[in-house]
């Protein structure tokens, strides 16, 4: 067992983990942050995306021990303390960018990382960026639209909702 300490959504969190414990498992099982989802075992689906030191990372591809000392942001820390949704979360709700909600935490975290690097991505740039995030419910239409809207683009021309 190894002891790990990291900052998660601004708070210090530590625990004892096995060497093989994944960051996704640590967040879910040790810290009870079950908003980070696990949808696959081959690092394909992106349901588990969190930010590690400001970068989008699939938390199922990283050992908890590797995250020792890191700054982690998860879906639970995205809304304001009073519950107000952030711009991306709000755009997902406004544009029906989620159905079952299982892919959603990963989508929101990926979108946040994209918009940080590229504040006004084109439709094609969004689609390419989301290559590592699978959604089975939405056909991606409203996810792409929501991200365009969150970046301040006019989406009224995109087929009506």
């Amino acid at each position: 067992m190894v002891k790990v300490t990291m900052t998660v959504n601004g708070r210090t969190a530590s625990g004892e983990v096995e060497g093989r414990t994944l960051l996704s498992g640590f967040l879910r099982e040790e810290l009870g942050l079950t908003g980070t989802h696990v949808g696959c075992d081959t690092s394909q689906c992106g349901a588990c995306v969190v930010h590690v030191d400001g970068k989008a990372v699939k938390s199922c591809t990283m050992l908890a021990a590797e995250a020792d000392g890191a700054e982690i942001a998860t879906i639970e820390g995205q809304a304001a303390p009073d519950g107000t949704l952030n711009v991306i979360q709000q755009a997902f709700q406004d544009h029906h960018g989620l159905q079952c909600g299982f892919c959603t935490p990963g989508m929101v975290m990926s979108a946040a990382a994209l918009l940080k690097d590229n504040p006004k991505p084109s439709e094609q740039e969004i689609r390419e960026y989301l290559e590592g995030n699978l959604c089975r419910c939405t056909g991606y239409h409203n996810i792409v639209k929501a991200i365009m809207a969150a970046s301040g683009q006019d989406v009224s021309a995109v087929a009506a909702e």
Partner: peptide
């Protein structure tokens, strides 16, 4: 707007694995 979205967007849904 869907009311269920708020919990799904904030990581507070309650799926069976949770």
């Amino acid at each position: 707007k869907r009311r269920e979205d708020v919990r799904f967007l904030t990581g507070t849904g309650n799926y069976t694995d949770d």
